[in-house]
Write a protein that binds this DNA or RNA. Structure first.
Lengths: 148, 148
DNA sequence: CTTAATCCTTAAAGTAACTACAAGGTCAAC
DNA sequence: GTTGACCTTGTAGTTACTTTAAGGATTAAG
């Protein structure tokens, strides 16, 4: 079963439970290089540490925001920055910031329109017109969605 | 070639050019029911209208924000709301608003940390510590990323 | 009128990011 | 000393596309 020992290394299932993903996904992340290969004990079980929980959670959150695994890898290399020259880090941060700000603009437009619709629907059964399509009226033009 | 006639129906390639996706993706969206099957003329070519440009752009933008095609379908049904009862529309809008607001929180945390890093890097070659991992320190717990 | 470009259809195969399953090895407990 | 929960590797399926292919129709241009 689960060793409830304080400060002990996490096994894959425990990391999975802590982050809400499956063990398979964690192994997949390792294969794809977004998670470092963890230590293995006398048994061949993977031994994770607290920081890995943060890392997996970060991958989940950024993926949910529409970033590709490749983009997540790049963002993680920012987190692992100490080894990288400042100019590179700055360039990457700037590029990602631009993308983040565009996503923010679109999400704010969605929030505004959804709030408006919710306001219109208050109480009575009146017919509502949702202009969410027009609210996002910004034609992306080959701005890659990638991922899929 | 392309008819430059004013107010003419768009052919699939023109809609593709206007939205930055391929014709194949547009046919795929039709198969998956996020785009209505358009009118066909005497020839069997699909005839699109201006509104379809908006619709495809909307699909792209929402996909880029990490929504699944199924979620996009739901959001589009809000846009096509007139036929649906207000209570339903309200419930859907509320559910989606909650999701949008969570994405906004995460993106704002990312923006803050990216801005901070960019500030630190100004000019000199000093080493920067990026705490983007900790900035998104919100463990999602089975909050579906789905899509893939 | 011919011809090149663009379109139509169906179908199948490839990619990204998982998700699920299969067959077997490990480990603490009873 | 075996049960059962957990681990291992590996393969196959799913979603949301992208790419390629084969064969036929349409249309703008020369």
């Amino acid at each position: 079963m689960r060793p409830p020992v304080e400060n002990a290394a996490l096994r894959i299932g425990q990391l999975a439970d802590a982050t809400g993903v499956t063990a398979e996904t964690i192994r997949y992340y390792e294969r794809e290089g977004v998670l470092p290969a963890p230590a293995r004990g006398s048994s061949k079980y993977r031994q994770y540490v607290a920081n890995d929980v943060e890392r997996v959670a970060f991958v989940r959150t950024t993926r949910a925001l529409g970033f590709t695994l490749a983009e997540v890898r790049a963002l993680l290399s920012l987190a692992d920055a100490p080894n990288r020259p400042c100019v590179e880090v700055d360039a990457m941060a700037r590029a990602n910031l631009a993308q983040v700000e565009e996503k923010l603009r679109h999400l704010e437009a969605m929030r505004a329109e959804l709030s408006r619709v919710i306001g219109l629907c208050a109480g009575d059964g009146m017919v509502v017109e949702c202009k969410i399509l027009q609210a996002l009226g910004d034609h992306p033009r080959r701005q890659d969605v990638s991922s899929a």
